[in-house]
Computed example of a mutant assay.
Amino acid sequence: MFETERCFVNTFQKSDYDDVKKLFVNQEVRKFLGGIRQENSIKVELDEMHNSSVDSFYWVVREKQEENFIGLVSLDPYHDDIHLEISYQFLPYWWGNGYATEVVQMIISFALNELNLSKVVAETQTANKPSCKLLERVGMKPERTIMRFGAEQAIYSIES
């Protein structure tokens, strides 16, 4: 378990399925992530996350005061199979208040300092301006853009 100033960040458990599912069916959350997922693919995804490999990490984020579910953050192998990628999804109610910045910054620090990774990457659609700004706010630098999933993607990275 991790703790930030305002959040608890716990390893994803089977008991978190219902909360995390809220992310996969939320139109706003999924706008830049390929759209809402179908019920059967959500179950498969959640099972894969729960039974992930040793180089994949999934955490559920809850705010401290009421322990409300906020979102999900992960570190897992990037498309290049060299680096780990940080990914995040937060429910819209929590957007714009610094929760994602707080948690993503802490996970990047964990990756670089505790896991001793030399580099962490992130990928987001260039059209997703808030996500690009968040990655820059936590110290990640744009590396390049590519076309993937039918849209222009920005690849960001941070090195130790």
Rank of each mutant, 00 (worst) to 15 (best):
82 I>F: 10
83 H>Y: 08
38 Q>G: 15
25 V>P: 01
25 V>K: 06
96 G>T: 00
49 M>H: 09
143 E>I: 11
54 V>Y: 13
65 Q>S: 13
98 G>M: 05
129 K>Q: 13
74 S>R: 07
99 Y>S: 14
130 P>C: 04
68 N>S: 11
3 E>L: 13
152 E>M: 06
142 P>R: 04
25 V>C: 11
114 E>M: 09
130 P>A: 03
19 D>H: 12
91 L>H: 04
23 L>H: 10
101 T>C: 02
50 H>Q: 12
14 K>P: 00
14 K>C: 06
137 R>K: 15
47 D>M: 01
27 Q>R: 12
32 F>D: 01
154 A>H: 00
112 L>T: 08
83 H>F: 07
78 Y>P: 00
151 A>N: 07
10 N>F: 13
59 W>S: 08
125 Q>T: 08
102 E>T: 05
101 T>M: 02
113 N>P: 02
98 G>S: 06
157 S>F: 01
139 G>M: 04
114 E>H: 10
76 D>K: 15
121 V>F: 00
59 W>A: 09
13 Q>A: 15
57 F>N: 03
59 W>R: 06
9 V>T: 07
131 S>G: 08
101 T>S: 04
137 R>A: 15
37 R>M: 15
90 F>T: 02
160 S>G: 14
54 V>R: 12
112 L>R: 05
111 A>V: 02
88 Y>T: 03
72 L>K: 03
55 D>M: 08
76 D>I: 10
65 Q>P: 01
1 M>K: 10
21 K>V: 05
12 F>M: 11
30 R>C: 11
136 E>D: 03
99 Y>K: 13
138 V>H: 01
29 V>I: 14
52 S>P: 01
2 F>A: 15
136 E>T: 04
158 I>V: 15
36 I>G: 08
